[in-house]
């Protein structure tokens, strides 16, 4: 953990310096020292929403591939089930489905907050805890179902 923080701190400082030397015209202060930035749960769930969005953007390829095979013919449908016998495909599929479920759950919270639900510091924390709990349940159900 220490090493990680040191590394991240160095990286942040470096990016800051680089930015300074490159972007001479821009005099706005940039705070990239992540050891002084607080990361409350709501920030982490929000970051994960973004990461899951990027991940499932690529994962859609797998889902479309399965949809394509499964609709083509009886044997294509059987092939999808056969592919899902392999542990690797199981894990990959679970990852994509879990990513989608996480993005869906956190996305619903995002939409609720856009409508003004829970827009307080406490509300944000409650929302983040709810997202984590629901996501963990969804991950397990998906795991049991695919596994």
């Amino acid at each position: 953990m220490r090493v990680f923080i040191k590394f991240a701190k160095g990286l942040a400082l470096l990016t800051g310096r680089l930015a300074e030397s490159i972007n001479l015209k821009d005099k706005r202060p940039v705070n990239l020292d992540i050891t002084t930035i607080k990361f409350p749960l709501a920030a982490i769930t929000s970051l994960l929403h973004r990461l899951s969005g990027i991940f499932i953007f690529l994962g859609v390829a797998l889902l479309l591939y399965f949809l394509d095979l499964s609709l083509q013919s009886e044997s294509g449908f059987a092939l999808v089930l056969e592919l899902l016998d392999s542990v690797f495909v199981k894990l990959l599929t679970w990852a994509v489905v879990a990513g989608l479920l996480y993005h869906l759950i956190a996305g619903c919270k995002h939409l609720l907050m856009d409508m003004g639900v829970g827009e307080t510091k406490e509300g944000a924390h409650t929302g983040a805890v709810t997202v984590v709990v629901l996501a963990l349940i969804a991950f397990m159900v998906a795991g049991v179902w695919i596994g």
Binding site: T15, L18, A19, I22, N23, D26, V30, R50, G53, I54, F57, V60
Partner: peptide, 21 residues
């Protein structure tokens, strides 16, 4: 959705701050 999302990500992270000129 994916285009707007990835566009937002690209304009947030691929800036002069990280990539210079």
């Amino acid at each position: 959705h994916a285009w707007i999302g990835m566009w937002t990500v690209s304009t947030d992270y691929i800036t002069a701050l990280q990539f210079g000129k």
